[in-house]
Design a binder for these strands. Structure first.
Lengths: 189, 189
DNA sequence: TCGAGTTGCCTAAAGTCTTTAGGAAACTGC
DNA sequence: GCAGTTTCCTAAAGACTTTAGGCAACTCGA
């Protein structure tokens, strides 16, 4: 029988597409096998387990987001950098909801340390260089930014802002305005 | 054979405990049946489906959180109300991670409209009465608060702040300080 | 280019979970 | 105490995960 030419990378990309189409938690080894017209057991030559597949998709999503964020950040500083960064995050989530959910998949500490999650943290700190914060306030601010970005995008994706006025885009802009103001006037302890 | 005396309410409570012990996505009809020493099919006299079980747990969690938040809010205003509200949210999540995850389970619009989620929104608006915001800024602020609370708690629960200094409690306090300052000096459009 | 070794896909099978159908024992109320 | 209802059961089918073992299809050295 002709070989299908599967590789872990190919399966991961297809898994990411599947996630965007049907949701990250609907990504199964079975569904992926179906997509390649191959028996389920065959995939186990390339993937250790269902968890392995999910982890690979998560790492892919983190990489993609970090790459886009890095592009967006190039040559920007201050509020300009803040909004560019935040927008890539939100835009990615809306274009790729399954991948975004994947990026929130719980990784074990070693995997997380080797992931592009580290670059995210570095970029967040880079943005804060445009504001006048020193440790430990900078760390507090990193956590605030992470919370707002993740929280807003997550609620928006869950449909939380769907059926109320004003529309989400408007709130997003105003939330970023508020965040910028907060960073410029960070209250001391 | 003696009856087990199951009811949807009993099963929901047990499901919530199970969620806190093993995680919300590990809550299955099978595991619940095991816990009551009863065959799986028996539970289908009380629950429509696995989705029904999850929905009930979600509604329970939303109720519990709203009740605690209402208690915490009684007699408080301004920053005092803000932190009390935020703390009940975070404390609940840390004490009941499975239930907290359940509260984020996607409900269909009608169910959501009948859920305690509505009370959460009302309480958030009540807190903002202590600040000087009018529509549509109040709505933007509601969304900001929801994002920060949810985002922070979610990241913290995912272990995002585990292995770095300063500890999460300290950041939480400073984030709430910053949020209070933001609301007091909300930037106009 | 041909044989040896490796790899990739297969069948088979066991264990998990969900859900429905249909039956019998245990309750309920008249 | 009997009729009707409810609750739990057995049985079964369908989906997903994972492992074991087999054979065909590649790869490479001689």
């Amino acid at each position: 029988m002709a070989r299908a030419g599967l590789t872990p990378e190919l399966l991961t990309r297809a898994g990411a597409e599947l996630a965007d189409e049907v949701g990250f938690d609907q990504v199964t080894v079975s569904a992926l096998a179906r997509r390649f017209d191959v028996k389920v057991a065959s995939l186990y030559s390339h993937l250790k387990s269902s968890h392995d597949l999910r982890t690979r998709i998560a790492l892919l999503a983190l990489e993609e987001m970090a790459d886009r964020a890095a592009d967006a950040l190039a040559g920007r500083a201050g509020k300009d950098a803040l909004t560019a960064f935040a927008d890539t995050y939100r835009d990615y989530a809306r274009a790729h909801p399954g991948r975004y959910a994947a990026a929130r998949y719980r990784l074990d500490p070693e995997t997380a340390a080797r992931s592009a999650g580290v670059r995210h943290a570095q970029m967040t700190r880079a943005i804060l260089r445009g504001y006048d914060l020193t440790e430990p306030d900078q760390t507090h601010a990193v956590r605030l930014l992470g919370s707002v970005f993740h929280g807003y995008v997550d609620l928006e994706l869950a449909g939380g802002f769907d059926h109320s006025r004003p529309d989400s885009q408007e709130s997003w802009v105003r939330v970023l305005d508020a965040l910028d103001a907060t960073l410029r006037n960070w209250p001391s302890a």
